[in-house]
Amino acid sequence: MGFNETVYNLIFKRTSTMALACVASAFFFERTFDLVTENLFEKINEGKLWKHIKDKYQQ
């Protein structure tokens, strides 16, 4: 049994397993996506955020 056949029979064949796979993937996707977009936002706004200029105003 090849890889494609295994994946198809285990996940995509039944709606229940596919929905489960979607939810499980969403769990990891959320963390990855949030991390990436947050880093991107901070990179674009480098030097403008409070955490970057905190040192100048707090003792």
Binding site: N4, V7, Y8, I11, F12, M18, C22, S25, A26, F29
Partner: peptide
């Protein structure tokens, strides 16, 4: 199976994005 997997993977990716 490989063709079906591709189709369902696309639908699944849409589902993941929608859930997020």
């Amino acid at each position: 199976e490989s063709r079906k997997n591709f189709t369902y993977l696309m639908a699944g990716a849409l589902g993941v994005g929608s859930a997020y």
